[in-house]
């Protein structure tokens, strides 16, 4: 089974640590990376697609280090990272032809492949126009079409719905869902839209300050409880519970998987808290807010 693996990937830009020891293995389904601007999502994707080299660590595609046979490895990856531009004086069709030839699609199959991805991504009507005349959304669709040429086993998409109109967003999501669920390919995408992440993914990661802070595959480790107090509570919360956000009247507290909710309540009461309500919250939005407001 094809897989993409990042082993202890770090990337530094001078004193800035964009990624810190990122470990990740994806072997199926659609994985979505969430994270605020500057969290390292795009840098991570650039490293996976060899646009950038890691300061340390290793990328493996299908078990082989990317650098060892990168032409073969990149042949298994289709990507749309950031908002790409294309060669202004080539038509969309010519750009797809070019990519088909680079991806070793036989000459007599090129037209069929172009028709397939053009129809899929809805660019057939303007693919004969020079790409310099395309709008942002058209380029985004062309980028997706190009990334899907030869049906690569792994599709890496960085904010793929950026710049699309509402209809385009729905269509793009359907294409991605279909590619992952029906065709059984690996999709790794980043987005700022939590609803998009929930809709598309079977695994969600939250990358924050260059570190994967949340992985829904290990979601049990990060149960979050929202506790509301009758009176403001500023007392110390005992370990192993971690208070990640507090307004005095309300606190978000992480509970390790082996602990029960009553153990938290008992601990809080013992610390003098007057509890009004305890709400167990598995919502990714809260987890996200909880992490990024650290």
């Amino acid at each position: 089974m094809t897989s993409i693996e990042a082993i202890n990937i770090s990337k530094n830009f001078g004193p800035v640590h964009a990624l810190k020891d990122v470990d990740l293995e994806i072997s199926d389904g659609c994985t979505v990376i969430l994270g605020p601007n500057g969290s390292g999502k795009t840098t991570f994707m650039k490293i996976l697609t060899r646009m950038m080299r890691p300061s340390s660590g290793l990328v493996k595609i299908d078990g082989e280090p990317l650098e060892e046979n990168f032409v073969k490895s990149l042949g298994m990856i289709g990507s749309l990272v950031e908002q790409p531009e294309f060669y202004t004086y080539l038509t969309g069709r010519e750009i797809m032809e070019f990519v088909c030839r680079i991806r070793n699609i036989p000459k007599n199959s090129v037209n069929d492949e172009i028709k397939r991805v053009s129809d899929l991504c809805g660019i057939s009507s303007y693919s004969n126009r020079k790409s310099g005349t395309y709008s942002r959304g058209m380029k985004q669709r062309l980028g997706l079409a190009v990334s899907m040429i030869s049906s690569p086993d792994i599709l890496i998409l960085d904010e793929p719905t950026f710049g699309l109109d509402p209809r385009g967003i729905v269509e793009m999501r359907n294409i991605i869902k279909n590619y992952s669920r029906e065709e059984g390919k690996i999709v790794l995408l980043s987005t700022h839209m939590i609803n998009e992440a929930v809709e598309l993914s079977n695994r969600i990661l939250i990358l924050y300050m260059g570190v994967i802070r949340y992985d829904s595959m290990n979601g049990d480790d990060k149960r979050v409880i929202r506790v509301t107090f009758d009176e403001p509570f500023y007392g110390k919360i005992e370990e192993p519970f971690i208070q990640t956000r507090s307004t005095g009247n309300e606190a978000l507290i992480e509970i390790p998987s082996e602990k029960k909710n009553w153990e938290l309540i008992y601990s809080l009461v013992r610390s003098g808290a007057r509890i009004r309500e305890v709400e167990e919250n598995y919502g990714i939005e809260d987890v996200y807010m909880n992490i990024v407001s650290d």
Binding site: L74, I102, G143
Partner: peptide, 14 residues
């Protein structure tokens, strides 16, 4: 500068 590298660098070509 023109951001075409985003399209061409990840292609399977040295």
């Amino acid at each position: 500068e023109d951001r075409t590298a985003y399209h061409i660098f990840p292609l399977p070509i040295s």
